[in-house]
Simulated assay, not measured.
Amino acid sequence: MAEEVNFIINTKVEISWSDGYYKSNIEDVRENYIAISIPTKEGQYIPLRVGEQLEVFYYPNNEDIYKFSSIVLGREVDRIPMILLGMPSSIMKVQRRKFVRVPIVCDINCSIIDKALINKDYTVEANRSKETLKATLLDLSGGGMRVRFNKDIKLKEIIVSYIPIDSDEIVIMGEVVRVDKDKDSKCICGINFMGLTEKTRDKIIRFIFQLMRSQMRKV
């Protein structure tokens, strides 16, 4: 559901990138763009180019999280260097429990699905008969995941993934919303889930929190 949101100077945003989330702040708001500080993560900067499409998370306060897509319009220097992002056409509110994301590296099987074959309930008949791609799951949340593929994947392609959770396997459909290349020229794809039932989402979230507790014990 699209939301009406006012952008506020000096509030936090994060940019989703192939290796995680880069922090930034809103420095200026104009009619056609939002100016943000250079996004950073552990002292590293993103090499943003004009025309680059970004997935942005916006934190107007301590309670709410919003997500939107935007395009880099250019750079500007006032007091500090800034990135100019196009004003988004739509903004979605994110439930915090869907947003929790945990690193997990495991092998999964995926299939690229023709949109014309997708049923209204987001199922695909005989989808196991499609070409199976070997891929690596990199992180997982209740709303999406990052996956590394050995072949080129395009934006907006529909991916069905078979993910092992505990002693079970869940089948998830999602749309590719971001594509980057790692140092080995493999595709790192951000995938947003489609048609996920609450039962399946709850199963994913329980699994995520199990992983988080396990990782905390190892620290």
Rank of each mutant, 00 (worst) to 15 (best):
V29H: 02
I34S: 08
G51I: 05
P81F: 05
N32L: 13
V77W: 05
V100Q: 06
K93E: 14
C106P: 03
G20S: 02
K41A: 14
M87D: 06
I26N: 06
I65S: 06
C106S: 13
K23G: 13
I46P: 00
V102G: 02
G20P: 02
V94Y: 02
I46E: 00
V56T: 13
E14Q: 10
K67L: 08
S89A: 15
K41H: 14
E76H: 10
W17E: 00
L73I: 02
F99T: 07
I38F: 05
D28R: 12
I104D: 06
R97L: 11
V100C: 08
V94C: 10
G86R: 10
N62R: 09
I46H: 00
K67M: 11
V77P: 00
S90P: 11
I15A: 01
E76R: 12
T11P: 10
I8D: 06
T40Y: 12
Y66C: 06
G43D: 09
V29W: 07
T11Q: 09
V105S: 09
A35M: 06
I80G: 07
I8F: 03
I71D: 09
D107Y: 14
R97V: 13
I9P: 05
K41C: 10
I83L: 10
I8N: 07
S24H: 01
L85T: 00
N61T: 09
M87V: 09
I8L: 10
Q44R: 15
C106R: 15
I104C: 07
S70V: 05
S16F: 08
Y58M: 06
I38A: 04
E27S: 11
F7I: 01
N25M: 11
M92H: 15
K93A: 14
V72F: 00
M92F: 15
Q44A: 15
N61C: 02
I80L: 12
L54D: 01
V77C: 06
I15E: 00
Y58D: 04
D64H: 07
V102A: 06
C106Q: 15
M87T: 11
N61D: 13
P81C: 05
S18L: 13
P60F: 00
K67W: 06
E27W: 02
P60Q: 01
D64N: 13
